[in-house]
């Protein structure tokens, strides 16, 4: 095997390898160059965040507008403090509301943003005041059972009165 063909084959090999790497980076992964454009951070306090994790999506009207940057426990208010990085080209009014939602029944949890009507827009470091935490299934079921029991006892007492 002479040197020229050898070099040719190694050249093809290296190019194929880099092409595969670029495919993995762009087609499979989510690398987008230059499209970052920067983000600004907003904070929200939730009474319960459920299974919300770092890097969870922040959506408004179903569109991805940012990601959760960090989740921590606030020792002052005894609730969860969530920092979200919102893409710089999306602006939301000051009185927007945030809620922890679930995509599908068993899906991942995300933060949903609903725009308010204020003229002033959220800036870096602002806090979203209207924040609704995650729905906890056990509490919901507990509440449902409690209501059901109350209903049936009301019914019983009313039918009991009717019989008298």
């Amino acid at each position: 095997m002479n040197r020229a063909t050898l070099n040719l084959w190694v050249g093809i090999f290296v190019l194929l390898g880099f092409a595969a790497f670029l495919m993995l980076a762009f087609k499979v992964g989510n690398l987008n160059l230059g499209g970052g454009g920067g983000t600004y951070e907003v904070i929200a306090h939730f009474d319960n965040i459920g299974q919300l994790k770092e890097r969870a999506p922040v959506r408004s009207a179903g569109v991805l507008v940012g990601r959760v940057r960090s989740v921590s426990f606030d020792m002052k208010h005894y609730n969860a403090e969530v920092h979200m990085a919102i893409d710089a080209h999306y602006h939301f009014p000051m009185d927007s509301s945030a809620s922890v939602l679930t995509s599908g029944i068993l899906g991942e949890q995300y933060v949903g943003l609903d725009a308010g009507g204020d003229d002033k827009m959220l800036k870096n470091g602002d806090e979203i005041k209207l924040a609704q935490g995650a729905m906890v299934l056990e509490r919901l079921i507990g509440q449902f059972l409690f209501n059901k029991a109350q209903d049936s006892s009301n019914e019983k007492s009313s039918t009991g009165k009717g019989a008298q």
Binding site: F13, V14, L16, G17, F18, A19, A20, F21, M23, L24, V28
Partner: peptide, 9 residues
């Protein structure tokens, strides 16, 4: 690493 990238692709 080049072979691993090709394997993945």
């Amino acid at each position: 690493p080049l072979l691993a990238a090709l394997f993945g692709a």
